[in-house]
């Protein structure tokens, strides 16, 4: 069947959404910079930033989904996530990127680059994990 039930993506990716950084500063989602994530994580007692490199991008279970395989952190742990093609990730030094930037822009009015194998995304882990 060609029908697909659209899964609602989180509202905070919509252009204009107000994001609070760890120091209390408010920014619009489209104005976030790599430093904002790094500095917020530095303040956080629980979370730390990890670099997650895109290793593979495969088709997901539904036509609108992709399975992205990341290599996470210094240990290069392999982690797979299945997301909708329009789901944006924040790439270090580049900003918001998704597998289908046109769709992300259409749905969220959020300017996006194309997420590619080799891109290094901002991700989080818990501090204290060894």
């Amino acid at each position: 069947s060609a029908s697909s039930s659209p899964v609602a993506l989180p509202p905070f990716f919509m252009r204009g959404s107000i994001i609070q950084l760890a120091d209390g500063e408010l920014k619009r989602v489209e104005d976030l910079k790599t430093e904002d994530f790094i500095q917020s994580a530095e303040i956080s007692s629980e979370l730390k930033i990890d670099s997650s490199t895109v290793e593979r991008i495969d088709n997901g279970q539904s036509p609108n989904a992709v399975v992205i395989q990341f290599s996470v952190g210094e240990l290069k742990a392999q982690v797979c996530v299945e997301v909708l093609v329009e789901y944006p990730f924040f790439v270090f030094g580049q900003g918001w990127s998704s597998c289908c930037p046109d769709r992300t822009t259409q749905l969220f009015e959020l300017s996006c680059a194309k997420l590619c194998v080799g891109d290094v995304c901002v991700s989080l882990t818990l501090r204290g994990m060894r």
Binding site: P10, P11, F12, F13, S17, I18, I19, Q20, L21, A22, L26, V29, L32, D36, F37, S40, S44, L47, D50, S52, F70, V72, G73, L75, A77, Q78, V79, V81, F89, F90, C121, V122, S123, L124, T125, L126, M129, R130
Partner: peptide
């Protein structure tokens, strides 16, 4: 009286995927 609409504020970490490496103890 018209109450002002409150604008939702989202925490920064909600935008970042939580990718926990598999642990081996």
């Amino acid at each position: 009286n018209v109450e002002p609409r409150s604008v939702p504020v989202f925490p920064w970490h909600s935008l970042v995927p939580f990718l926990a490496p598999t642990q081996s103890d």
